[in-house]
């Protein structure tokens, strides 16, 4: 469903993601764990392009949401001037032998040393933009299918609870105002906050805010939900109600990617754990594998500290 290919992200000098790749299948509940600063939140935010990766590609259901990265496509590299020059040089050095061997060597060298330049000739440019046009998707369209829940809720402060849920579906023309309101009320009933429909977010408790935020994401009927530390900003007594709701969604088969520090929850709900460290996936596997039998020394150390 989501396919991440070798993404890098840095903020100025600080390199946060260093070549992360992974696939997330429909129905999976992927939990991302790791020490703070390991890039978990940045990774999650890259999935719906709230952060734009500097390199690499992200595909959502066969659609490319990032810019096409030429380094991911050998056939595009072959059209570059750099490739032509290097190829000629190799052939010359090897007494005129050409062929697939040389081709492979040249491409892998270009990839390793990232030799493509900003100006690579029209053929290369045309191929790249053609690829983008063929596979790319407008990010606003892609985001409609990806719900996101933030650590700090980010409910729209200037709107009532009901309006928070109906704004996007109505604005985007997915539902009429009446349909949107019906759907919103159904969701509010489900999370037990139907009586708060006309309240402003400032009147809600943290747990209620987060439940409304989840309902707001659900109002778009997303195919996947991204949770960015959904309980980290909550008072301890409110963590339970939010986790219960997420658990319910998980049981219904929603595809989820969750960044969390709730280890018990991760183990119970997750179908796969990604342990991130220093901008890379250090270890991944089922909860049983990662929690009970971690192999990476960094993972072992982390669990020793938190469990």
């Amino acid at each position: 469903m989501i396919s991440v290919k070798n993404i890098h992200k840095s903020f100025g000098e600080l390199s946060v993601l260093r070549g992360v790749s992974c696939n997330i299948e429909a129905g999976e509940k992927v939990v991302i764990l790791g020490p703070s600063g390991s890039g978990k939140s940045t990774f999650l935010r890259c999935l719906n392009l709230l952060e734009e990766p500097n390199q690499g590609e992200i595909w959502v259901e066969d659609k490319l949401i990032t810019n096409a990265d030429p380094y991911e496509h050998d056939e595009i590299i072959e059209l570059s001037q750099t490739y032509a020059d290097l190829y000629a040089k190799y052939v010359l050095e090897n007494d005129g032998t050409a062929g697939d061997e040389v081709k492979k060597a040249v491409i892998s060298r270009i990839k390793e040393q990232r030799l493509l330049k900003k100006r690579e000739g029209s053929l290369f440019k045309k191929a790249l933009s053609q690829y983008q046009a063929q596979h790319g998707i407008d990010i606003n369209l892609a985001r409609q299918d990806m719900g996101m829940v933030f650590q700090h809720f980010n409910l729209f402060n200037n709107m009532t609870v009901l309006k928070n849920l109906t704004l996007a579906p109505v604005q985007l023309g997915l539902k009429t105002p009446e349909e949107a309101e019906q759907n919103a009320m159904r969701l509010l009933q489900r999370i037990g906050l139907a009586d708060k429909r006309d309240e402003y977010p400032s009147k809600l408790s943290g747990g209620q805010k987060q439940r409304v935020a989840i309902a707001r994401a659900l109002a778009m009927n997303p195919k996947v939900m991204l949770f960015d530390e959904p309980t980290s900003a909550l008072d301890p007594e409110m963590v339970g109600e939010v986790l219960d709701l997420i658990r319910e969604l998980a049981d219904e088969g929603m595809t989820m990617v969750i960044v969390t520090h709730e280890m018990g929850f991760a183990r119970e709900v997750g179908t796969r754990i990604l342990f991130m460290d220093e901008g890379n996936i250090a270890e991944e596997g089922t909860p049983a594998e990662v929690f009970d039998n971690p192999k990476n020394p960094r993972t072992i150390q982390f669990f020793k500290a938190v469990l």
Binding site: N48, L50, N140, L141, A142, R143, Q144, M146, G147, M148, F150, H152, N154, L155, F156, N157, N158, L167, A168, Q171, L172, A213, R216, A217, M220
Partner: peptide, 26 residues
């Protein structure tokens, strides 16, 4: 708060609608 913009964009609203409906009123 930048989170307001992010929440709008994450729902698929474009930057103009997010600005007009969410950010500017606040």
């Amino acid at each position: 708060d930048i989170g307001q913009t992010e929440a709008g964009r994450a729902l698929g609203l474009n930057s103009r609608v997010t600005l007009i409906k969410i950010v500017i009123p606040q």
